[in-house]
Simulated scan of single mutants.
Amino acid sequence: MTHFAQLEAADFPELQPGSVWLVGAGPGGPGLLTLLAYHALGQADVIVHDALVSDAILALAPVSSERIFAGKRGGKPSPKQADISLRLIELAQAGRRVLRLKGGDPFMFGRGGEEAEALARAGIPFRIVPGISSGLGGLAYAGIPVTHRDTNHAVLFLTGHDETGDVPGAIDWPSVAQAAPVLVMFMAVKHLPVIAGRLLAAGRQPEERLTIVSNAATPQQQVLETTLFAASSLVEVPTPAIVVLGEVGTYRQSLDWYVEAVRSHRFG
């Protein structure tokens, strides 16, 4: 039996009409989709996807599936979250099999919790399909282990902007600065100078290694290595990007495997 035949024979659930699956598409490459995400793509009547879902991933769905763009990108006109949730409800109430496809993991700064709450309030059946977060998989594709026994036993994940697009006002930056040796920051490039200044003021060292991974897990991946102090003057950093502060970035010197994979056209 082939691998695909085994997949088809496996007991995967059916995406039922009138229901919504909130699915994580992973950090970039189609090869990082989970089997359940791939299974969902093959069943959906309509795919409501964000800006981080690539054309290569969408191409895995049947041509008959309707695609609806619901992307949010900083500084650009974007649909409101309430409108996206309402659209999911309306599509499900119309009897459609709805796939809400998000980059990374829907519950890791992906607003999946908000959308699931809206579906629950409306009585819409839903399923959560976790994805590989860019804060894990994206860093792995840059040769950065998010934890390593020789450098850190703790890591802290945070977002670089709130719902208004500003630096999150509710974050206790002095506490964050001292909470873990490694900080992984999502959507932080726009406000990186401000964030760097607050971390420096809270006691992080100016020479501490800061690594930015742009377009992670795709052939367009770029990695910028700098310091926390120098981050305050960075300009023109490609996005989407994941930012990691901490000495785990030093492992790229020996673990940067993806550069050779791209050169050899071995993507995924």
Rank of each mutant, 00 (worst) to 15 (best):
I124D: 02
V167P: 00
G131S: 04
A61D: 06
V129D: 03
R121V: 11
R198D: 01
S254V: 15
W257P: 15
D162R: 10
D45G: 07
E14N: 05
A44F: 02
T226M: 05
T227R: 04
V189G: 11
G71S: 07
Q93W: 06
L15D: 13
A179F: 03
V129G: 05
E207V: 12
H39D: 08
I171L: 15
I128N: 02
H49G: 12
L33D: 13
A56D: 11
V237I: 15
M1Y: 05
A92R: 10
M187C: 07
A188P: 08
T227E: 05
H49R: 04
K76I: 13
G26K: 10
F109M: 03
Q222H: 07
G26A: 11
V243G: 08
K80P: 03
S264D: 14
R209S: 13
A116W: 00
V237M: 06
G268C: 11
I171V: 15
G249D: 14
P13F: 02
A70I: 01
A261T: 07
I89F: 10
L158M: 12
S19M: 05
E208A: 14
L36G: 03
E66H: 08
D172E: 13
I132W: 10
K102W: 00
L158P: 02
R198E: 14
S214R: 00
L199P: 08
Y258P: 08
L86C: 12
L52A: 09
T34H: 03
T227M: 05
Q16V: 04
K80F: 05
R127N: 06
L255M: 15
D83W: 11
R127I: 00
D256N: 15
I171E: 03
R252P: 07
E115L: 00
A180H: 09
L200M: 10
V237H: 09
S19C: 10
S54I: 02
A56N: 01
T2Q: 11
E14V: 14
S54P: 01
V63E: 15
M108W: 13
L41F: 07
A231K: 02
D11K: 04
A217D: 09
G160E: 05
G104M: 10
R252G: 10
A56W: 05
V244L: 15
R198W: 08
M185C: 13
H39M: 07
P106D: 01
P240I: 01
G135C: 05
I212D: 06
R67H: 11
P168N: 11
A180I: 09
E14I: 14
P193L: 12
V155H: 10
A44N: 09
H161F: 07
E114A: 11
G29L: 04
F157E: 02
V98L: 10
L255V: 11
L224S: 03
T226I: 06
Q81C: 14
A170N: 14
R96K: 15
I195M: 09
L7A: 11
D256S: 13
L22C: 14
A118E: 05
M108L: 15
F109E: 08
A216M: 01
H191D: 07
A82L: 06
V53I: 04
V98Q: 03
A61M: 07
E114L: 02
P130F: 01
I84D: 00
L192P: 06
H39E: 12
A201H: 03
T164A: 14
I47G: 04
Q43E: 09
L192Y: 09
S19H: 09
H39P: 12
A217Q: 06
T239D: 11
G268F: 08
L139H: 00
V262D: 13
A5Y: 02
G138K: 02
R96I: 10
S254P: 02
V248K: 13
